[in-house]
Write a protein that binds this DNA or RNA. Structure first.
Lengths: 202, 202, 202, 202
DNA sequence: AATGAATGAGAGTTCATTCAT
DNA sequence: CATGAATGAACTCTCATTCAT
């Protein structure tokens, strides 16, 4: 049983494709690039997917389903509004760091899909966004800080999604530290003092 | 002498092109799209620019020069580190709102250039980034909040540049209000209370 | 032993293929179309035939052998030149109506074969044509109507073979009636009166 | 003024294309074949037409418009039903002989178009068919030969359109003689005596 | 200054066919 | 006997760009 079953092979293709899309962008990437990167023939790729756009769709769809599920699970363990928001942030950043290519493709190629595929992904995006908006809204309520909560949610997403432009998960700043910094920045702002290390234990 | 001079015509072309690039993306936009949008013949366009990539370069280069100059001028009026940072934010958001297309092209097509053109733009980007990093660094110093300041700068840029994904400057939230909210969020965090309206007048 | 023997299976394939070729044309039909239509896998088809062109060849070859044999047998019962010609016409039209797909493929895809296969089919075509030419020639001799007899034969074939463009055997005009009308038209022309119904009985 | 204007060039392309389509068939013909046959680059062709199917459409549409106009004009000179029908036949055959390629493409590629283009051509085809059906109907009335007149019209079209399968206009039988023979066959049948040669001179 | 015409290179996709299992 | 997987070759069409006028 040397030949991998269909799904496994498709998974390989999607993983490789995500890397190439992340590196070159969806439009500049040619099917021939993907053929080369996957080691398959051009026609062979079409055995697994009906076209280039479907590749992008599959990458985005799977990735979104996973972040959404992961976030839901992470948030469910929270004990307070603040705690839940922080868990959301930690999860998002950690997931992004672990799936850089896919998440970059999700963030950067948001409008490279068309028609029904675009609509599908946008529906997922809305779900994910609403999740975060609920959390920021709750935090603001708790702190009697009443603002338009969708602005805060978008601000946070911007902060977090922008990282594909600069962050290297293998660099000196580990994802957990980045997540914590983001959480602190977003909750308490730039002017808040660095939390004492002890505060974690107490 | 009904025909506009060269530079004026080029300006028109760049403005129109920025809109089309913003709407469709750089790669999906064809020279024929630009020919149609500008009302010029395809060959006519080539009298003003040597190629499609140069259009992108010119849009990005001019736009960057202007934000940088504008930011420098805005910041120079600041009376404290906090004030200077807030002025930077206000300026960036206001500029973005006034030049949505160009700024989206700047943010989204950061890697659509190649070679020397890319290097040129990246140099400008670095200058602009360093400007903000200096400001966040100063604010942190003032507040004895010592963190890696480039993370904060990137976070703020992410927050602000992400707006091309959701913000409508002509909608209910005017750019000034958005800028203020961003400034407050970034400086004091989500948990800080809404500033009293009186603070505006006083 | 539920699986049909090789020849039976081949027959099914040819019958299905003829329908698809008739409906879509030889060139636009893909092997995948045939795989779908026959319910077999793509590779499975290749167990029965060496390629797409062979399918067309087999359909044409068998069909031609049958019309030729049928025509010979029908004509052999004739009692006069006129009678023999009429029998040929009746047989051709009836056969066409009973094997619409195959006959359309024969008529319409006459030049979709290449090389030896084309030559083979053309030889059969010539044989069939010569048969009819002999008959029209005899009729003309009998009526002292001397013309180039191959023109008449081609005219009649045109009249009869064209029916795949318009005739529906399941419609109001049954094949026998069509054949009779063609026979009358061809023998006596448009201006001849309709034969009295009585003439059939007497 | 060495370069031919757009329309003239398009005309050349259509003429050449008709020949190639007639020789190889629409589907087997590749755009590269047409590029070679016209002496233009592949991309150059697309300056004149939006795609391969449009070439087929234009060839069929123009050809149909011309036969229809020519037939109408020819028929209008007729002095009796018989005369008008004969004129129609003569015109059709002569036109076919003069425009063999286009007429073969019209006859043989009747269903290679799709969608609106197909509908358009089918509308023209109906018009032309109705023209002939009116004529055969009138002739039958005059001769008190009452049959379903559309069968006769289809028979005649079959007779005439089939010629692309065998007739060579440059061969021993000139188009006028072929037309006359068809007219005689169709009006009076195979059994009618050859018209006296004198009738030609007098 | 401006353009219609033209093109080389390459894009995504399809196809008939093969082969290991 | 049957098939999923795979592929080389080729297809239609598009693109950024050039050039004669």
């Amino acid at each position: 049983m040397t030949s991998a079953p269909f799904d496994e092979r498709l998974e390989q293709i999607l993983a490789t494709t995500a890397k190439v899309f992340a590196a070159k962008g969806f439009h500049p990437t040619t099917m021939r690039d993907l053929s080369r990167a996957t080691g398959m023939s051009l026609a062979g790729l079409y055995h697994y997917i009906p076209g280039k756009e479907e590749l992008l769709y599959l990458i985005q769809e799977r990735c979104f389903q996973r972040v959404i599920a992961g976030a839901a699970s992470a948030v469910s363990l929270g004990t307070s509004a603040d705690d839940r928001l922080e868990r959301f942030i930690r999860h998002h950043v950690a997931f992004f760091a672990r799936h850089m290519s896919e998440m970059k493709v999700l963030s950067h190629e948001a409008n490279s899909l068309t028609g029904k595929r675009l609509a599908d992904i946008n529906a997922l995006k809305r779900r994910y966004f609403e999740m975060l908006r609920g959390l920021t809204s709750d935090v603001e309520s708790d702190h009697a800080a009443h603002h338009d909560p969708h602005v805060a949610a978008y601000a946070l997403f911007g902060m977090m999604n922008w990282i594909y432009n600069w962050y290297n998960p293998a660099g000196p700043l580990p994802p957990e530290a980045l997540a914590e910094r983001f959480a602190q920045l977003f909750m308490f702002g730039l002017t808040s003092p660095a939390p004492s290390t002890a505060s974690h234990g107490g």
